Simulated assay, not measured.
Amino acid sequence: MARLCAVVVAVLVAGAGCGYRFVARDGTLPEGVRAVCAPIFFNETSEPGLETLFTRAMRQEMVRSGTLGDGAACEARLEGVVTNVSSYPTIVTEPITDENGVVVVGPQLASYRAFAEARLRLLKDERVLAETSVSGTEDYLPGSGDVLEAEANRQAALHRLSETLMREGYERLARNW
């Protein structure tokens, strides 16, 4: 154990001597804004709970970049609207036939795709500093015939998609697209 600790300390000291350091990624927002509040997003879809999912993903991005403010310390506000969500089948397997051409197994659904879209605006004193729209897709499996399994897969896909879209959205706001 002592030997392991010595190795870890040696690596850290050697790394520090080479100029390496651990810092948060650049989260510079327009006009040097460093503390942003992110109230719960609006949900214009018929899918319940998406506003919470997308708000949480955006706040997580802001924590990573060091820009999430709290209450009175906020210099700006980030507003979001989830504008669209859908799911649709993407891959259907070909039917399997026997040597006589009789269909043994019919076509089966092999994959679904979730789609989501959101608008983001960064405001300072009710003035828009930056705004963008993001959209994307995430594939998921339909499950093994169990409706609950298929829905769990869909929810997991929407979770991954919200994280991806909010990461992209934050980067666009920081670059002032």
Rank of each mutant, 00 (worst) to 15 (best):
95 P>Q: 13
49 G>V: 10
131 E>L: 11
102 V>C: 01
38 A>I: 01
130 A>K: 12
77 R>S: 09
115 F>C: 04
155 Q>G: 07
68 L>M: 04
10 A>L: 11
88 Y>G: 09
2 A>V: 14
27 G>C: 01
21 R>T: 06
9 V>E: 05
175 R>W: 00
54 F>Q: 05
26 D>S: 06
143 G>S: 13
153 N>P: 05
130 A>S: 14
4 L>R: 12
119 R>W: 09
36 V>W: 05
162 S>C: 05
140 Y>W: 08
83 T>M: 07
10 A>N: 00
4 L>I: 15
83 T>K: 09
70 D>Y: 06
57 A>T: 00
99 E>N: 13
101 G>L: 15
62 M>A: 01
104 V>P: 06
61 E>R: 00
48 P>Y: 09
27 G>T: 00
132 T>E: 05
47 E>C: 03
73 A>P: 04
66 G>P: 02
78 L>A: 06
36 V>A: 03
53 L>H: 03
2 A>C: 01
19 G>K: 02
166 M>G: 01
29 L>I: 03
77 R>V: 15
118 A>Q: 13
83 T>D: 05
109 L>A: 08
24 A>E: 00
92 V>K: 13
171 E>C: 01
15 G>S: 14
84 N>C: 04
17 G>C: 12
63 V>Y: 06
31 E>Q: 15
3 R>L: 12
100 N>W: 09
46 S>R: 15
11 V>N: 01
77 R>A: 08
48 P>I: 05
79 E>N: 15
44 E>M: 11
75 E>H: 11
116 A>F: 13
91 I>G: 02
32 G>Q: 10
93 T>D: 14
44 E>I: 10
169 G>C: 12
75 E>M: 14
89 P>Y: 15
18 C>E: 10
48 P>E: 03
32 G>N: 09
105 V>T: 13
168 E>T: 09
133 S>Q: 11
68 L>I: 06
65 S>D: 01
161 L>N: 06
151 E>A: 11
40 I>S: 07
138 E>G: 03
63 V>P: 04
84 N>A: 11
133 S>H: 03
156 A>T: 12
135 S>I: 02
6 A>W: 04
95 P>L: 12
115 F>E: 13
49 G>D: 08
175 R>H: 00
111 S>C: 13
71 G>T: 10
68 L>V: 02
136 G>Q: 07
51 E>A: 13
132 T>M: 10
128 V>D: 03
20 Y>T: 08
169 G>P: 14
103 V>N: 07
11 V>A: 08
130 A>C: 10
134 V>Q: 10
68 L>T: 01
115 F>A: 09
73 A>K: 10
